[in-house]
Simulated assay, not measured.
Amino acid sequence: MNYKFYHSLYGNRYNDYMGVGIALPASMQLISTDFISIGDCLRSTMEPHEKQTGFFAWCHDLCEFILARCKKPTIDPWNVAICRNNTLICLQVIIDDKPLYIGTYHMPCLYSIPDTMIIHSSMVKDLMFQMAAGHPFILAGDFNFKPNEIPYRVITEKSYLNHVRLPNSNQYEVSYRPNGEQILKSAYCEKNGTEPNYTNFASTSQTPNFCATLDYIFFAGNLHVNKVLDLPDHPTGESYPDETHPSDHLMIAASFQLL
C-alpha cells in the first residue's frame, strides 16, 4: 500500500530535529491539513500585563526588585508554554462518505514544570474539538504524562478543571478558557478497561529504570473501538531500545468503526 507522509520537524539540531507525522494511505480522500504550533496558538490569547505608572507603581516595582533579590525567581508556566514549538497535525479525511479528523501531538517533556504540560494538554484537546466541529476524531501520540497525573485527567474527566484550575500568569493577561465539558476517551481504556502497564521503558542517568505509560490513542464522537494491539505486561532486557525493540516506546495501535 502506498502512503503519503505529512510531518512537521519543529525541533532543532540539539534534539535531532524532533517532529511528528501522520502516514495516510494514498487512496484515502484527504480534505484538509492543519499544522498548528500550540505555543503560537496560546500566544494569540495572551497580552502582557499593562504597565502601571506613577509614584505607587514606582514603589511597587522597587518592592518587587528587592523581593526578587531575596527569593528564588519563579517560572511563569504560560511563558514556557508559548516558547515551545511543539506542533499539532490534524488531517480531515473522508471514510465511507463520512468525515473523520485524525490528529497527532508530542507533548513537551517538562516534568519539572507540570503546569505547562497541563496548559498544552488542554489547548490541544480543545483545538481538536474546535477543528472537528462536531465530527468524530482520533488524537494519538506521545503525551509524556501518566494515567494518574493531572494532564491526563484534565482531558478525560468532565469538569475536572472546575477543581484544578489552570495556573495564573505573572506576566500576561490570558483570555483562553478551557472547555471542561468536552473530554476524550482512550482506546485502550475503552476496550480493556485500563491503560497498558507501560508503553515506555528506558534507563538513563537521570531516570534509571523508567517504565510507564506515556502514549495514548484518544478519540471522541461516533467511533467504536473494535480492537487494540496487545502489549506485554512487563519489559524484557535492561533498557529500550535494544536488539528487538527499535525504540524506547512500544508501538500502540487500535482499529475503529466509524458509526
Rank of each mutant, 00 (worst) to 15 (best):
Ala68Leu: 12
Leu24Ile: 09
Ala26Phe: 09
Phe56Cys: 05
Pro48Trp: 00
Arg69Val: 03
Asn15Lys: 01
His49Asn: 15
Arg13Phe: 12
Lys51His: 11
Cys41Phe: 13
Ser44Val: 01
Cys41Trp: 14
Arg13Lys: 15
Glu47Gly: 05
Lys71Trp: 09
Gln29Ala: 14
Asp34Leu: 09
Ile38Asn: 00
Thr53Ala: 13
Phe65Ser: 15
Ala26Ile: 07
Leu24Glu: 05
His7Thr: 14
Asn12Arg: 03
Tyr10Cys: 00
Leu62Asp: 09
Ile38Ala: 03
Ser27Met: 03
Leu9Gly: 04
Asp40Gly: 03
Cys59Leu: 15
Trp58Gly: 09
Val20Gly: 00
Ala23Thr: 06
Tyr6Asp: 01
Ser8Leu: 04
Glu64Asp: 11
Ile66Pro: 00
Leu42Lys: 00
Arg13Glu: 13
Asn12His: 08
Phe35Cys: 07
Ala68Glu: 06
Gly54Asp: 01
Tyr10Phe: 12
Ile36Arg: 08
His49Ser: 07
Arg69Tyr: 08
Asp34Met: 08
Asn12Val: 02
Leu24Val: 07
Asn15Ser: 00
Thr45Ala: 11
Phe56Trp: 14
Asp61Ala: 15
Ile36Pro: 03
Ala68Gln: 02
Cys63His: 09
Pro25Cys: 03
Leu24Tyr: 01
Tyr10Gly: 04
Gly19Pro: 02
Cys59Trp: 08
Gln29Thr: 12
Asp16Ile: 07
Leu9His: 08
Leu67Val: 12
Asp16Pro: 03
Gly19Gln: 00
Ile36Tyr: 00
Cys70Gly: 11
Leu24Asp: 02
Ile66Thr: 07
His49Trp: 14
Tyr6Glu: 09
Phe35Arg: 15
Asp16Trp: 14
Lys71Tyr: 14
Ser44Ala: 07
Ile22Gln: 02
Ala23Lys: 04
Leu30Tyr: 02
Gly11Ala: 03
Tyr6Leu: 07
Glu64Leu: 10
Leu62Ser: 06
Cys41Pro: 01
Lys71Ala: 09
Trp58Phe: 12
Met46Val: 04
Met46Leu: 02
His60Ala: 15
Met28His: 07
His49Asp: 06
Thr53Val: 08
Cys70Tyr: 08
Ile31Leu: 08
Asp61Thr: 08
Arg69Phe: 10
Thr33Asn: 10
Ala68Arg: 10
Pro48Leu: 06
Ala68Asn: 12
Tyr10Gln: 04
Gly39Glu: 03
Lys51Ala: 07
Ser27Thr: 12
Leu24Ala: 04
Ser44Asp: 10
Leu62Thr: 12
Leu67Glu: 13
Phe55Met: 10
Thr53Asn: 11
Asp61Leu: 01
Gly19Ala: 00
Asp61Arg: 12
Ser8Asn: 05
Gln52Glu: 11
